[in-house]
């Protein structure tokens, strides 16, 4: 069985980002497409990377397959992915092979899979988040890039027109406002205006590269709730990323 995806670099950036804070995860492949899931050991963040069947150039799959793997090893292999590389994935019950191909020259890397019992199942989250913001292209990347050095806490607030991202450090305070009228914000659906939610900045910093590549970002957020960040890419690929709220005393 084999699947082929046109943009190896997206895989590269996703695995490099996840590898910064998670050691292991698993790929699920069935007739509907591929899902990669990983959760950090502290259960503060959970990432789901999905590509529907239609997003693949080739999708030769029967049945359902669960492939538990080392993210560090996978990220090392994917680090060799270049701009024009096409990525194919083949697997057996014991190993997974990544094949990069550019100008007709394939490069193949195989790593062993973990035993299924060695990887913890990742539960589904049950969340209704009342505030949803759709952010243009790399707007979220620009904001996090500007704020991350100021504070280890990201405060998110907003109303029906604007989304305010704030970093309050010991010395400086930085604030970025994305606005439906003035720019940065494509859409705002807000049921709880005036909310203020806090998250650890580092969990947003980890995802900067995938944020930068996204066609658009959707941030769902509310006070005391995990945030759900959806990063959308071409061919239907998307990342759904959950970050637990930060507890302040």
């Amino acid at each position: 069985m084999r699947i082929t995806f046109s943009n190896a670099r997206l895989w590269r950036y996703v695995m490099a980002s996840v590898g910064k804070f998670i050691d292991t995860g698993y790929i699920l492949i069935n007739e509907n497409g591929l899902t990669f899931k990983a959760m950090d050991p502290s259960k503060t963040a959970l990432i789901i990377f999905e590509i529907p069947k239609e997003g693949f150039m080739e999708f030769d799959v029967e049945g359902e397959h669960k492939l538990p793997l080392s993210i560090e090893d996978t990220a090392k292999i994917l680090r060799t992915a270049e701009k024009d590389d096409v990525l194919s994935i083949e697997w057996s019950s014991e190993s997974i092979t990544f094949v990069f191909e550019r100008r007709g020259v394939p490069r193949s890397f195989t790593i062993p899979l973990y035993a299924e019992s060695a990887i913890e199942e990742i539960p589904e989250l049950e969340l209704e988040i009342p505030n949803k913001y759709v952010i243009y292209a790399a707007g979220l990347y620009d904001a996090i890039n500007s704020l991350e050095d100021v504070s280890e806490v990201l405060a998110v607030s907003g109303d029906e027109q604007k989304l305010v991202l704030t970093a309050e450090g010991d010395i400086a305070t930085a604030e970025i406002t994305l606005d439906t009228e003035r720019g940065g914000l494509e859409e705002a659906q807000v049921e709880n205006p005036g909310f203020r939610a806090l998250y650890s900045m580092e969990y947003f910093s980890y995802l900067k590269s995938p944020m930068k590549m996204a066609d658009r970002s959707i941030l769902e957020v509310d006070e005391g709730l995990p945030c759900r960040l959806t990063l959308e890419y071409s061919v239907g690929a998307r990342i759904v990323y959950y970050v637990a709220p930060r507890v302040e005393e």
Partner: peptide, 26 residues
């Protein structure tokens, strides 16, 4: 240490938002 709570050991983390009785989305 606040970290303990941030790590979910003090009741934080994503744990309390997990759907009960289910182990996977797929």
């Amino acid at each position: 240490w606040k970290t303990l709570k941030r790590l979910g050991l003090g009741g934080g983390g994503l744990t309390k938002f997990f759907k009960s009785g289910r182990s996977d989305e797929s």
